[in-house]
Amino acid sequence: MKDFPYSESKDTRSGFGAGLLELGRTNPNVVALCADLVGSLKMGDFIKEFPERFFQVGIAEANMIGLAAGMTIGGKIPFTGTFANFSTGRVYDQIRQSVAYSGKNVKICASHAGLTLGEDGATHQILEDIGMMKMLPHMTVINPCDFNQTKAATIAIAEYEGPVYLRFGRPVVPNFTPADQKFEIGKAVMLNEGKDVTIIATGHLVWKAILAGKLLAEQGIDAEIINIHTIKPLDTEAILASVAKTRCVVTAEEHQFNGGLGESVARLLAQNLPLPLELVGVNDSFGESGTPEELMEKYGLNEQSIVAAVQRVMARK
């Protein structure tokens, strides 16, 4: 099992803020909108340096999505910022009609996704957003794993023409991906090559997968670990190649089973390579208040859950 050294832990939302600031300096067409959460979204540095390219919309997310769609007309690249819940479920029809169906170059940037939002509880802990967004034709869905990758993803989506949902979060997590690693939309990142099982993880669960890989190595299990930062379009080639080798797979995500990464992988395997699959995620339930660590343990989203899933899936080989 490879080692993944890191010098500090940081939040992915700060990666977004850093990426947005860099885009401000390098791409004059980038504009930003926010629905009264500039601090939470770490948009302050961009706003300070480019006040004329920032639009405060107040607590009016539906209007924000429409404004962003309109701002593409005239050549701008709008980045909207609010919590993941208010970026998706609250504005689904606005995204569907004005952004996705209209093919607009809007980047919907969503923080505080999943259980790791913590104490605010289930009203804010959206676990259905990946599903909602991946169902929309034309929509690209990205869930990076750490600060560096979120920053790189933020910069990469400005280069891509089309609607994107970029999902990140609140807690600090080990910042282990190389700062100079190029972000390629739709391209899986092979973290550790192994032969016994494939672990496919996205977002905050990528680090948990690495921790699980270490625990598995102690048991003599050689896990292949893949970081799927882009859930749509899915890197089907990388996944099928890995599973063809290991003959079983575990997916891990901070999301419902319904509509999540695991479901996308299940469909891919069922149609092409029907081999045992186990899913780590939330099983048709809302979250609740608690610390991120407590919640991840209670809802089965930590390294122990991944290890248990690997043991189950390997027994089915």
């Binding site: 429409g66 962003a68 009609q97």
Partner: peptide
């Protein structure tokens, strides 16, 4: 822009005006 689901046009148009 696509329209039909009502109420979205003013937001889009104001974005274009900005």
């Amino acid at each position: 822009i696509a329209s039909g689901s009502l109420g979205q046009g003013p937001s889009v148009a104001i974005g274009a005006a900005q």
